[in-house]
């Protein structure tokens, strides 16, 4: 809350991707859309402290065919349990994973195969839950999602060989 007037906008990539998608600068290739059921983890820093929930949902709905909400979601989501610096505490990983059974249950309840986690810190947390509880899901970032599904113009593709 230090700087009240900043000469530039500070954004999360998700918000920026949303702008790109809405303004049509980035197009999604309908053929490449993700077919597996996906769910979205709402990172505290971006959702609860920047209110980007709807933008993220827009991106996911544009790129995935089967999007399932976790419950509770948006600003009432549960934390990934790696926040507040816990992601770096290797000695405490099992403690951390035990402390987030609700998140594992939340993910399993959606039946999704991919959890989109638009936050590095949260990915650490979600991965430790996945490892600890042996969940049959994988995590994915927005950048991976967009690189896999975006429409790349012909002239940008490299020549064969």
């Amino acid at each position: 809350m230090g700087y009240k007037e900043i000469p530039f906008e500070v954004m999360h990539p998700g918000e920026f991707y949303y702008e790109l998608l809405v303004s049509g600068r980035l197009k999604i290739d309908p053929a490449k859309k993700i077919k597996e059921p996906v769910t979205l983890h709402d990172p505290c820093n971006v959702i609860r402290r920047a209110g980007a929930a709807e933008k993220f949902r827009y991106i996911v709905e544009q790129t995935c065919e089967d999007f399932r909400e976790m419950y509770p979601n948006r600003e009432h989501n549960f934390c990934c349990n790696a926040g507040g610096g816990l992601s770096s505490l290797v000695q405490w990983y099992s403690h951390e994973a035990r402390g987030n059974r609700v998140k594992a249950e939340q993910i399993m309840a959606t039946g999704a195969k991919i959890v989109i986690v638009p936050c590095h810190n949260c990915t650490t947390g979600i991965k430790s839950i996945i490892n600890y509880y042996k969940l049959p899901v994988k995590t994915m970032f927005f950048d991976e999602l967009l690189v896999n599904t975006m429409y790349i113009p012909e002239e940008m593709l490299p020549e064969e060989g």
């Binding site: 505290c44 609860r48 009432h76 989501n77 505490l89 403690h95």
Partner: peptide, 9 residues
């Protein structure tokens, strides 16, 4: 340090 994530929930 290890039991709170400062998630503001």
């Amino acid at each position: 340090f290890t039991e709170c994530n400062i998630c503001h929930r």
